[in-house]
């Protein structure tokens, strides 16, 4: 009896603390279906998920919030995983999808089984699912806009892209190229695929550098800026302005350069904590709240003046992050 009262008190306290989160969802189970865990961004994303959902489960806001990751970044594997989650009786499935279209079949099956599907970062296009999308195109565009302001005289650009054939890579690159077309003083003289990994980017840049004229700036997709800097240093060429992608090694390098020679740049990426935003959105939908099907996440941008603060809170080998609370989620849903 006492135990029960205690549990009720804790649940009540949690409800009050969580504000809008009602206890109506206390016996609902939410699953995270994640397609990949092999880089620092995804690791941080999973950590954030644990950090936010564990207290939520303990507080009784939801009954379970279990993360599932496929061992390889494969559509077929994730589809099978989602089918298994349907069978396990989850009420909501939060998805970071391996493909925007190729999971539509199984997502429809989940919806038909009465399951709430919320996709984020790697979104799905099936209309019955919710999408927490990142405007990757705008992210690419923002890099060039920054350069246009910073160096009005223009110059040659080197573009480092992500993984070929992936939707995110296509979108960021489109944003970059369309904006470059608006500023004729800039010219992309080379483009390589860095696969969002420093070592790959370093090799790719080192390979193309000898064939390039002077490069004024490097536009990137995140996870490749540090590798690019290393390649320029190894080739003995002057370090251009390299846009960073919020990774700790990139911020650390930027800080060193800033202290040594007042190096200036900016850094932009998506906070991996967006998984927690998706969690709260799923919880709100289960709670019966009205949530628009398409939401947009703001990007996390780091500039010259807040570099130190961001670097201090970023784990070694990690990526700059923010986690969302139920209130933050409610604000995003309300479009504020």
């Amino acid at each position: 009896m006492f135990k029960k009262t205690l549990a009720c008190t804790i649940a009540l306290a949690a409800m009050l603390a969580a504000g809008s989160a009602m206890a109506d969802t206390k016996d609902k189970k939410i699953a995270l279906s994640n397609n990949y865990a092999g880089n620092s961004w995804r690791q941080a994303m999973l950590k954030s998920w644990d950090k936010v959902t564990k207290p939520a489960v303990e507080a009784g806001i939801v009954a379970a919030a279990d993360p599932f990751t496929t061992s390889e970044n494969q559509v077929t594997e994730q589809a099978a995983q989602i089918q298994n989650l349907i069978l396990q009786g989850y009420n909501a499935i939060v998805i970071n999808a391996a493909s925007p279209d190729a999971l539509n079949g199984v997502v429809k099956q989940a919806c038909d089984a009465g399951i709430v599907v919320v996709s984020f970062d790697g979104i799905v296009t099936e209309p019955c699912a919710w999408r927490i999308a990142v405007d990757f195109k705008a992210m690419g565009a923002s890099e060039v806009e920054y350069l246009a302001k910073k160096m009005p005289e223009g110059g040659n650009l080197l573009e480092i892209r992500g993984l070929a054939g992936v939707f995110v890579d296509d979108e960021i690159s489109k944003g970059i190229n369309e904006t470059v077309a608006k500023y004729p003083q800039f010219k992309i003289v080379g483009s390589v695929h860095g696969d969002w990994a420093q070592e790959v980017a370093q090799k790719a840049v080192a390979g193309i550098l000898p064939s390039l004229p002077e490069v004024k700036a490097v536009v990137t997709q995140g996870g490749d800026g540090y590798g690019a800097a290393q390649a320029f240093a190894a080739a003995g060429r002057p370090t251009p302005l390299i846009i960073m992608g919020n990774r700790q090694d990139e911020l650390q390098w930027w800080k060193e350069q800033k202290d040594a020679n007042k190096y200036e740049t900016m850094s932009v990426s998506i906070a991996p904590g967006v998984s927690t935003l998706a969690f709260w959105v799923a919880q709100m939908i289960l709670d019966g709240k009205e949530v628009p099907k398409d939401l947009t996440v703001p990007f996390l941008r780091i500039d010259q003046d807040n570099l130190e603060a961001s670097l201090a809170t970023t784990e070694k080998g990690g990526v700059a992050n923010v986690e969302y609370t139920a209130e933050d989620a409610a604000k995003v849903v309300a479009g504020k």
């Binding site: 970044n73 077929t76 594997e77 589809a79 539509n104 079949g105 429809k108």
Partner: peptide, 12 residues
């Protein structure tokens, strides 16, 4: 089954 194409769909 997938209802959409993807070059990497069957790598495994």
């Amino acid at each position: 089954l997938t209802t959409a194409g993807d070059a990497h769909v069957a790598d495994r």
